[in-house]
Amino acid sequence: MKESRGWFLFMIAGLLLFVLLGAHLIGMHLSSLFGISYEKTLSFSHVAERSANVAFTIFYLILLALALFHGSYGVRAILLELPWSQGRERIITWIVAGIGLLFFGYGVWAALAALGQKGVFV
């Protein structure tokens, strides 16, 4: 794959993250600005409510994929520029992609499992 393909997606992901992660950040970490207490946002009943919501789950999965891709590509760029990266470009790419996929898999599983808990905890 040409390097420009990945970089194009990296930039698009960055642009989308500015909007989506901004919304996530304001909603989760700054909820106190809208009069919802921090403890309430993070209480399990609220978390379970969001997890059971299909729209929220889709939003989370998109955010997860974008953030992991953007982060992994960025970390790969830093690793590729290290002095000892010469001739190990493929291995670095695979390791970073592997870590990204591992966490993506766990995130997807957690989101779907929490979605399936609908009616059990709420």
């Binding site: 399990f44 978390v47 997860l64 982060g71 995130g107 957690a110 929490a114 808990q117």
Partner: peptide, 25 residues
């Protein structure tokens, strides 16, 4: 960027605990 990446990995693990029920969370 590196700090956010490390936080992201941690964040995925921490928030993933919601799948194990209220006590774990």
């Amino acid at each position: 960027g590196l700090l956010i990446y490390l936080y992201l990995l941690l964040h995925i693990v921490v928030t993933g605990s919601r799948a194990f029920g209220p006590d774990a969370w």
